[in-house]
Design a protein around this nucleic acid. Sequence first.
DNA 1: AGTTTATGCTCGTGGGACGAGTTTAATGGG
DNA 2: CCCATTAAACTCGTCCCACGAGCATAAACT
Lengths: 384, 384
Amino acid sequence: MNPVRRGQWQMASDVLTQLTRQPGITRAAVARTLRLSTGSATEVTARLRDVHLVTEVPAPSQGRGRPTTLLRAHPEGPVVLALDLRQSNWRSAIVTLDGSLQDPEYRRHRSRRPQVVLNNLRRQVEQARQQYGDRLRMVSLAVPGTIRDNHLMQAPTLEWAELDLETITEGTGLPLLAGNDATLSGVAEARTGAAAGAGTALHLIIEVGIGGTLLIDGVPAQGASGAGGEYGHVPFGDRSRACPCGARGCWDLEIDGRALARHLKQGRPDDPYAYTEEVLRRTDRSARAAVTKVVSALGSGIAGLVNAHDPDVITIGGLAIPLRAAAERTFKEAYEGGLMTFHRGSPPPVLPATLPDGPLRGAAALALDQLTTEPAIAAWVAQR
Amino acid sequence: MNPVRRGQWQMASDVLTQLTRQPGITRAAVARTLRLSTGSATEVTARLRDVHLVTEVPAPSQGRGRPTTLLRAHPEGPVVLALDLRQSNWRSAIVTLDGSLQDPEYRRHRSRRPQVVLNNLRRQVEQARQQYGDRLRMVSLAVPGTIRDNHLMQAPTLEWAELDLETITEGTGLPLLAGNDATLSGVAEARTGAAAGAGTALHLIIEVGIGGTLLIDGVPAQGASGAGGEYGHVPFGDRSRACPCGARGCWDLEIDGRALARHLKQGRPDDPYAYTEEVLRRTDRSARAAVTKVVSALGSGIAGLVNAHDPDVITIGGLAIPLRAAAERTFKEAYEGGLMTFHRGSPPPVLPATLPDGPLRGAAALALDQLTTEPAIAAWVAQR
DNA sequence: AGTTTATGCTCGTGGGACGAGTTTAATGGG
DNA sequence: CCCATTAAACTCGTCCCACGAGCATAAACT
């Protein structure tokens, strides 16, 4: 193990980071954004080519001048296995350094028992290992639940108890990166979605309860143990209502299907997600009134988070999109009414999230962040 | 203006960063933490000495072996003027690269009119300019109010309206870095205070209302325009109560002297800070009950923020310290009761802030962050 | 076909990190 | 008191890489 010379792969790392953040970028564009001289660009791409990290394909000409090339992941280059575990199914894809998804898979759960599901994921890891060998560098997993140091702490939608997720890579020596699905979809939105380019972005998604994350320059604020982003469990409403999370009066209890059912004087729905969709389809007065209450709670809660974090933009996903759409005026009033006065001149926009496969792409993005660091590149080169 | 060669001052920048973060660090210790070979350490310190950025003084010997040297700011090196504006006074100090404060000043306001106060600050800037000439590189200012792009948006304690703070450096060409005092004291705590070393830290301070900041690796999450950290203006309690900020039901209204007065059925106190101290001195039943209510709101609000951000540690300052102390049991119950179940095993500690001159030190720290960047070093070298 | 334009390639230069070998300045044991 | 031990500083040859000037190339205009 020869020690890595400092800065040896610094520029290479910068180039690869550009490539993951803007797939399909041209070599000339990379050189411009990194302020590289053409000579340096030639050298760094040659080096990256030599170690099987990138290839170049002719770019369609863009006017006068010698045409440049598109940078692409090398066909023999490193890859990541991205997994997205959902309530009723799971998906996977192999992701290359240019951020493209290959070999996408989609499977419905036959059984939803933790051990069965984890075994299926583990098999997927092993299959990727078989197929890609040493090219497979990392496994990244999105889970609909609270994650702490690669352990699942609670997962209301899956109805799973605490669980060690590292079993899916155990024995393979592959690093695992498990993350909350809402956090990861936020990463995707902040990098290539509706919040692209935002310095500070806030992402919120309603499915059962609300999840989300604060993103600073595309990096999620995950907290000490990775459990950050549980915005649903801030005290907001009636303290006499206990939340399954253990606290009382959580915002969570005011903005999803459970809240709608309560307003409609019905019991806790089995599937709050489907229940919400159902109520949204109704046109009767009591349903509209219930929706209005929920949308109001959503708007004023978001306003509070804007006061707290001053984001450039907020992206909303899941049921938050149809909920807002069902009562746009209520939302606007609650949102703007909850802002501190000085924010009202130009309130940060609340945009619908645009990426359907956000968690998978976000998981891939965080894994690629690791692969494009200098030490990871040095390790890749050393191993070949 | 010759273009800066990439990486020319990379290592120098790293060394200076170490120096600002751990004043009084030895050269050998820097080399160890940056994993520098002794040869490189010799070279980089020689370079820094040549350009008047550091000097070395013999370090007290620490056992066997050749003694190392302490790194110190160079007597001809760059400095920052740090200013801390408070309700009844202001303070200033000159800060060098090793983080030491020189020429401390303390002045009470004669008049509290904005123009008078800003003029005094401006005079202080001019005086520093006179005294230090080109060595003065930057002015950093802590203000008890919401700051946005160097503009004061609102300042309840000062009772000032919106105001452009850049007048204090106008014409000097000096960059100004204005920030909220609570945010800046958080920076100080996260770097050298009670939260030193924390990856994610939350800092909260009660004076009139509550201010604070989320810190990730010592860097405050300031948001899009620098107005982040207004945790007091998240909806928390009774929505029928309007907050001066423009929103309703803010947490702010539940945790300071105004809340105590309300519980005690008295009118809004002129000076909520002094009023709180007064109530804390009382031992009668109604006062105790009012304090209990406020402490409970403080504890459960902090718990919500812990759920949202998963910090390693929370630091509290200002009146939050005596308030908690007055009802420790209530605080603990409200805090732990508001946490999500999985946090309760080892709840993040809530520690009293330790630095009395936090805002000044925090302002200095953020300014030094700028001075120790590669471009700033290159500019310093080019100018000499 | 020649001009313009943007880009890629070659190569000499220089700076800086590295590390092996050497020197220096302290402690501590005999 | 001297010498072994220890930790750190210094010297210097080496290598790597970014830079930029000059040249080559491939397209689009004229």
